[in-house]
């Protein structure tokens, strides 16, 4: 190890500076993240409906996960199952179109034989939706797809004679889900494309050259070289996207009429938030228990992603590292 080689030549030890440099990070992280994490675990054993809580043991988990006999608990269980289902549906519905679209685009962007002009411009434009404030995007789509007869899209469709009554784009079960899937895909496909591109650029170009000499078609190259070699980074993308999907909050919370939450698009993150975010009678117990369940799911997914993101194996990191070297190192 060449690091801190000063230690070898001199009697002065610089180790204490190492601790001092990382100290602020750890103090702040422990105070604002680790303690709250343990606090969440503690609150998951506490009662609901009041700021002052008392212990209920593991009952919150029982009420969330198993359908209870008495009515209020049965309702909590049903809600929990519903929001978990919504989360899965919305995640699938935005991940599948997103990965297909992004894979195609990434393959095209990196194909040296295609003479596409203005690649940089397309990348910049396609990434743009990702940086626009989600709250503003939600507001814009609620306005455009407003359900009264004067909503921009409804009015246009009516003027064209395509509909008789306004379409319920925001509150209908299927429509609202499709809209959120579309908005999420719209916001994220550029980001996923660029991530996959850096993966493809990590593949040895001589493989494509050799395949080309052997007369492999672009389709064959895509399915026999790009996809198999991209598998680690695709899995990594999928898992990080899944963790992101479990956290989906802004769009489901904001794409609504007024302040009433659409129950067909309510996700687990919205469920957690709505239960604890109450100054007078927060349901800390349900909220925290749902968070712990979310934590366990994330930990399992995260450790899989972690295995693929290790320094010494995993193409994704290697590709990123080499890109980092060439691009930033040269700057």
């Amino acid at each position: 190890m060449a690091t801190g080689s000063g230690v070898k030549h001199r009697s002065i030890s610089y180790a204490k500076y190492g601790y001092l440099f990382i100290l602020p990070f750890f103090l702040v992280y422990i105070f604002f993240q680790i303690y709250p994490l343990f606090n969440t675990f503690y609150l998951s054993t506490q009662s609901n409906g009041s700021v002052t809580t008392e212990s209920v043991g593991l009952n919150n988990f029982k009420w969330l996960l198993a359908s209870g006999q008495s009515r209020p608990y049965a309702a909590v269980h049903d809600n929990f199952v519903r929001v978990m289902g919504n989360t899965l549906i919305l995640w699938f519905g935005n991940f599948i179109p997103q990965i297909i679209l992004s894979l195609l685009l990434a393959a095209w962007f990196t194909d040296a034989y295609l003479k596409i002009k203005g690649k940089g411009f397309y990348k910049i434009v396609m990434y743009m939706p990702n940086i626009i404030t989600a709250a503003s995007v939600a507001a814009l789509f609620v306005m455009l797809f407003s359900e009264n007869q004067f909503g921009a899209v409804n009015k246009m469709l009516a003027n064209m004679g395509l509909i008789d009554a306004p379409v319920r784009f925001v509150t209908d079960q299927t429509n609202s889900r499709i809209m959120i899937m579309f908005i999420q895909t719209w916001m994220w496909f550029g980001n996923t494309t660029i991530m996959l591109m850096s993966g493809i650029m990590g593949i040895n170009p001589s493989l494509f050259e050799a395949a080309n000499i052997d007369g492999a078609s672009p389709g064959q190259q895509f399915f026999l070289i790009t996809i198999p070699l991209l598998r680690p980074i695709m899995l990594y993308t999928m898992i990080t996207s899944m963790i992101g999907g479990l956290q989906m909050f802004d769009m489901p919370y904001l794409y609504n009429v007024g302040t009433s939450q659409n129950k067909y698009t309510e996700t687990i993150a919205v469920f957690i938030y709505n239960h604890f975010h109450n100054a007078i009678s927060p349901n800390y117990g349900y909220s925290a228990a749902a968070s712990v369940i979310l934590f366990v799911i994330t930990a399992v997914l995260g450790s899989i992603a972690f295995a693929f993101n290790k320094d010494d194996d995993g193409r994704g990191t290697k590709a990123k590292k080499s890109a980092l070297k060439t691009k930033l190192g040269g700057a």
Binding site: Y29, P36, L37, V51, I243, A269, P282, L294, T298
Partner: peptide, 21 residues
């Protein structure tokens, strides 16, 4: 630091919010 990178903000937010209030 690597291990905690993936902890979603929603998981700690109940404890965070209650602590802050």
């Amino acid at each position: 630091i690597l291990a905690v990178m993936m902890i979603p903000v929603q998981v700690t937010s109940v404890g965070f919010y209650q602590f802050m209030s």
